[in-house]
Every structure is written in C-alpha cells, then in structure tokens.
Amino acid sequence: MAWTWFFRLGSPKWFYQIAGRWQPWIWGLTLIGLSVGTVWGLFIAPPDYYQGDLARIIYIHVPAAYLSMFTYVIMAVSAAIGLIWRMKMAFMFSISCSPIGAAFTLLALVTGSLWGKPTWGTYWVFDARLTSELILLFLYLGHMALYNASDDIKTADKSAAILAIVGVVNIPIIHYSVEWWNSLHQPASLSKLAKPSIDESMLWPLLIMIFSFKLFFISMVLPWLRNNILWRERDSQWVREMIEK
C-alpha cells in the first residue's frame, strides 16, 4: 500500500499532471529562497577579512559547484533505477538532468575563474579541483551527445544510463581532490560531520543559497521532464486529448 506512490511515479501521465500542479509553488519557493539568499549574502553578510567584498562570489560559486556534483549523482542514481526496474520515467528524469548539470558546472567554472583572477592572479590553472570539474563538464557533454546520437530512443536511454553510471567515478575524485593533492583551491568550507570552517554570519546565507539552488534545480528539471514526457508520449491518447482541448 505504502509503495503505490512509487509505482504511480512511473506513469508519465500522472507525473505530468502532478508536476504541473506543483510547478508554480516550487517556482515561488525558489524565487523567495534565491532573493533572500542573494540579499543576505551580497548586502547583509559581513565582508571577508582578507578579500573584502570579493569573497561574496562564494554565495554563487559554492552552490553552483555543489549542485554540479549533486545533479550528476541524481542523474546516475535515476539511470540505475531505470536500468534495474526498467522505469521509463527514471530514464527521462536522468536525461533531463544533464543539460541542467552542465549549466551548473559551467557556472561554477566561470565564477571560479572570475574569483581566481584577483585572488590567485590567474583565470585558470590546471590544478586538481579545476581539472576534475572540467572533466565533469566533458562527461555531461558526452552524455548529451551519446543520447542525441542514437535514433532509437530505448537504446539511447540505456546507453546514456550506462555512461552516467560509469562517470560516477569522477565524483569522489572531484570531492577529495583538494585533500589529496596540494591545490591552489582552498579546502571545502562545509562538511557534514565537522564544524564548518566558515563563520556563522556567512554560513547561514550560504546554506540558504545552497538550498535554493536545489529548489532551482527542481524548478528547472520539471519543465524539461514534462517536455520530454509530452514528446515521447506524443502518440498516446491523453496527450492528443490535451492538445486538442
């Protein structure tokens, strides 16, 4: 009984409708979260002792970098669910993740290099953290390219899913790169277990930003997913009825 919701998730029609109903609420929450986090981070939080106002880019850079990895893990997990339980919704979700993840990765790389120029004196260095984040971008691009290369949608789904799962090896490499190698990049500011190395006055806006970025991910992935559903179910009865209405 408790599992019926999980199986209903597998129905494109049900998901399309429920996602459509939730969408405005999630967008609203995202907007509130992003504005609160941005105002708090950019205007209210104190400037950094060493870097002054420059350090405020952390409120964009860290959430984007966090989400670039988070999205990849979500993408790989749903790919695995798709392969194991043969749920087509899981494949569609996995496919919808990669353009958004690629955008987050690009954002993290761009904000990082803008931050790097005044503090390290260079836009780009081939150091462990930066290079592995760049590999992540290539993995996303490869995933999209492989999916788009195949004519048969079922083959495309499965091949892309296998590639997503294989690429997961890169995630721990990115995460621990700053600890394993002597890197220009500073060690992680946040950790689940240890006390954060960042002051509370800056921690709260950062946490709000990370949370709102997650909401932002959901509010971006839902339209992608709904478009995918419509496109794939274009021959089914309910889509036709809805379009004709």
């Binding site: 290079t131 590999i135 290539f138 993995l139 691009l141 490869g142 390219a145 492989l146 290369a149 195949s150 083959t155 091949s159 296998i162 590639l163 294989v166 690429g167 090896v169 890169n170 490499i173």
Partner: peptide, 23 residues
C-alpha cells in the same frame, strides 16, 4: 560498446572516452 551501433560513432567515442582517460 556504447557507440558501435551508431553511424557516426568515431568522434563520439573520443568524446566519451577521453575524459575518463584523464586521471
């Protein structure tokens, strides 16, 4: 194995495999 069935698999193969070669 991922690209064998595709018509233009060659360039895609390097796109998929080279990132994994980097480590």
């Amino acid at each position: 194995s991922l690209t064998i069935g595709l018509r233009r698999g060659g360039i895609l193969l390097s796109l998929l495999v080279l990132p994994l070669y980097i480590p």
